[in-house]
Simulated scan of single mutants.
Amino acid sequence: MNGIHDMGGLHGFGPVIQEDDEPVFHSYWESRVFCITQVLDTKAIWNLDEHRHEIELMPTADYLTSGYYGRWLFAMERLLDRKGILMAGEVQRRVDEMHDGTTPLTAAAPGARGWPLREECKVRWGAWRHEQTVSPRFAVGDRVRVRNIHPESHTRVTSYARGNVGVVDRVNAEAWVFPDTRAHYRGENTQAVYGVRLSATDLWGPQAEANTSVFIDLSEDHLEPA
């Protein structure tokens, strides 16, 4: 989908600031969100691409101000709420009970709020590829055009490349999962992935550095013959 998360090639965000001896986490809460997310990723609640799409639904101002782990927290809270596992506001109510000190904390009954998940409700986090091969449609040296698509659903093709023509530089013929459909449980649609070489001046015009190429990995369904 088109949104602020697709920032490649955009102007106006200033220089990338590099920190000397940058810490892994800038705040304690970031480490907690990282750990919680890693645990939940093993519980078969959502798949990788579904989680990524949820981040894409974040309001623009929140996306720009929440930071990397704030976006993880946003997606985690929304997915848990939508799947009936941890409802919006429930955590805050528990925090209020703890601070109050007079209201007893009671554990949820087994099966409440959709947890634990029944086996038929569990989903695979999902590997990027499977140990099998597919028949690639394109070969090294083929001229291809990046499809000019603007879906409201998840897509892994960046906006600045759409509609541009490049050359296949590498063919990954393993069976790679198609994130655009797996994010919405419309199948894994395994296919080849290609390393496509595009001219920087084709992407950004004469102000781009001359004689420079940009290499982008693209799924077969993102390409068409040029």
Rank of each mutant, 00 (worst) to 15 (best):
N2E: 11
G3S: 15
H5V: 04
H5G: 07
H5R: 15
D6R: 10
M7L: 10
G8K: 09
G9D: 10
L10V: 10
L10I: 05
H11P: 00
G12R: 05
G14R: 08
G14P: 05
P15L: 06
I17V: 12
E22S: 13
P23C: 09
H26M: 02
S27R: 13
Y28G: 01
W29R: 07
W29T: 05
S31E: 15
F34T: 04
Q38D: 11
V39F: 09
V39I: 06
D41H: 14
D41G: 00
D41T: 06
D49V: 00
R52Q: 10
E54Q: 15
E56H: 14
L57W: 04
L57Y: 01
T60L: 01
S66M: 07
G67C: 02
Y68E: 11
A75L: 06
A75F: 02
E77T: 02
E77L: 09
D81A: 10
D81L: 01
I85S: 11
I85N: 13
A88G: 03
V91M: 09
Q92T: 12
R93W: 10
R94K: 04
D96A: 14
D96F: 08
M98V: 12
D100P: 01
T103C: 11
P104T: 05
T106S: 09
A107Y: 12
A108V: 02
A109W: 01
L117S: 02
L117Y: 11
R118H: 09
R118A: 08
E119K: 14
V123Q: 13
R124V: 05
R124I: 01
W125G: 02
A127K: 08
W128Y: 09
R129E: 05
T133A: 13
V140Q: 12
G141S: 03
G141L: 06
R156C: 13
V157R: 07
V157T: 15
S159E: 15
Y160R: 02
G163K: 08
V168E: 12
V168L: 03
D169Y: 14
R170I: 02
R170Y: 13
V171H: 12
A173F: 07
A173K: 12
E174W: 15
W176V: 00
V177P: 00
D180T: 11
T181Q: 05
R182M: 05
A183D: 07
E188M: 05
E188P: 01
Q191S: 12
V193G: 00
Y194F: 08
T201A: 04
T201F: 01
T201Q: 14
D202S: 14
L203M: 07
L203D: 02
G205E: 04
S213E: 03
S219L: 01
E220P: 00
D221R: 10
D221C: 06
A226S: 14
A226E: 09
A226M: 09
